[in-house]
Amino acid sequence: MAKQISELKLGILGGGQLGRMLIQEAINYNLTTLVLDPDADAPCKHIANYFENGSITDYDTVYNFGKKADIITIEIEKVNVEALEQLEKEGKKVFPQSRVIRLIQDKGIQKQFFKENDIPTAPFMLVNSKDDLTNGKFPFPYILKLRKDGYDGKGVMKINDASDVENAFQAPTLIEELVHFEKEIAVIVARNANGDVKTFPMVEMEFNPEANLVEFLISPSTYPESIQERAEKIAKDIAAALNITGILAVEMFITKHGDILVNELAPRPHNSGHQTIEGNYVSQFGQHLRAIFNLPLGDTRSISNAIMVNVLGEKGHDGVAKYDGLEKILSIDGVYVHLYGKKYTKPFRKMGHLTIIDQNREKAIEKARFVQQTLKVIS
């Protein structure tokens, strides 16, 4: 007889806020959770059943940790794939599969995957070093991205003209045509081992111009149904082409001409899905657990208008975190606070998020703007 979910051990590579929120959901299933993270004070430390302080990029550390679990998942892509491949060969279940993680780790391979599978994306070219940027084959301006290790806006640079090439990355990179977009959007899709697929409603995102990471998200979108259906179909097509098990976040642009172009993928719970905890019948974290344990997928419909605001460390503050304005925002109806358990703040560090719920979309946005301006993380 197959084991029930509560009898299994879930290993999570990475102990940050995504792992923390996944564990908070896993507790509802009586799941035993094991976490590996290089930070001895990682957010997951005090809520995991077992916490190990160690490198998630070291082969032996990841392999030995993985042997303790029944199912292994990730909260960040920068992990040792070779160890996961060996664990799969030995019968361990790894979701997303190691081949999917390997593809996502390299933005160049990811782009080639889009091209080979007719996924709409901006024109691109792969280069080995900044010396290759002077050959004139790609018109200025363009976006330059490191093929590996870019994260939360890091490893991305705009090249306006030849003078910017001098400061470009000296590493394998990806050149991408500058997209003049109207809105950045995202669709989260889930797929279980049976091949059942469900998407969450499309969301609209606003990015912090300095840190280049999401700081304001509106769900659900009010774009025409035809655009939303196209975006959801693209997400489903990608999940099917990858044959992925688990959650996949698909970040996209809507151009000024109404075209949809895929930007990047994340094969795990994602910042663009945090509002689902209060805003949808099933959260992205609950859906990820359902998918990797091959359970029926949950109802992804929105319950209400939901605005997600990232709580970022203030500029000029570096030290023990203090949350200024918390009482003021808690006096407002429909505000839900999620702090990530990080002791120290620094400029633009993700310290938490807030979800604002209201049946009136404009009121939800108005409340969220006030919350965004009122709560400050200082030291």
Rank of each mutant, 00 (worst) to 15 (best):
S55V: 02
D131S: 07
K346C: 04
I247Y: 10
E366T: 09
T121N: 00
V94G: 04
R102D: 14
R290V: 03
I234H: 06
Q17E: 12
V320P: 01
K158M: 08
R268D: 05
I247W: 05
I357F: 05
D39Y: 08
A171Q: 07
K92F: 10
L217C: 06
I277Q: 10
A42S: 15
S304Q: 09
S272N: 10
K92C: 12
T345H: 02
T33P: 05
L22N: 06
Q275D: 13
I332S: 03
K154I: 01
H317R: 07
F293A: 09
L354V: 13
K376S: 12
D299I: 09
A235R: 11
K367I: 08
I277Y: 14
V377L: 01
G54S: 07
K115D: 11
N28H: 13
I74A: 08
L87W: 12
D318E: 15
K158P: 04
I101M: 05
N117T: 06
G136S: 03
A122Q: 02
E77K: 08
N192M: 14
D106M: 09
I329K: 15
K363E: 12
I365Q: 14
E90A: 13
G16F: 00
K148C: 05
K78V: 09
S98P: 15
K67S: 01
Y50G: 09
D237H: 05
A368V: 11
I227Y: 04
P201C: 15
N194W: 01
L265K: 05
L146V: 11
A240V: 08
L339Q: 12
D70Q: 10
G258I: 06
T173L: 10
M21Y: 13
G298S: 15
Y281W: 15
N167I: 11
F169S: 14
F169E: 14
T276R: 03
A266K: 09
N360F: 08
V371T: 07
Q86N: 13
M1G: 04
Q4F: 14
G325M: 13
A239T: 11
L31H: 02
K67P: 04
K256F: 00
E206S: 12
K145M: 04
S379A: 13
D118W: 01
E90T: 05
T374S: 10
H288P: 10
G341R: 04
V94S: 02
V320A: 06
E166D: 13
P267R: 11
L326K: 03
Y29I: 05
T255N: 10
K342F: 01
M125Q: 15
P269G: 04
E362T: 10
I56G: 09
I5G: 03
L297A: 08
I292S: 05
N49G: 14
V100W: 10
I76N: 03
G150M: 13
N360W: 12
G108L: 07
M202V: 14
K343E: 15
D58W: 00
I109Q: 07
D259G: 02
A239L: 05
S98I: 01
K45V: 12
I238D: 00
P38R: 12
V337E: 14
Q105I: 14
Q359P: 11
A69M: 12
E176C: 03
R349L: 03
V282P: 11
I5F: 06
E182R: 08
N160V: 14
P296I: 09
K3C: 02
L8M: 15
L146W: 06
G325K: 03
K115Y: 14
I356A: 10
G313V: 06
K93Q: 04
N271E: 09
L126Q: 04
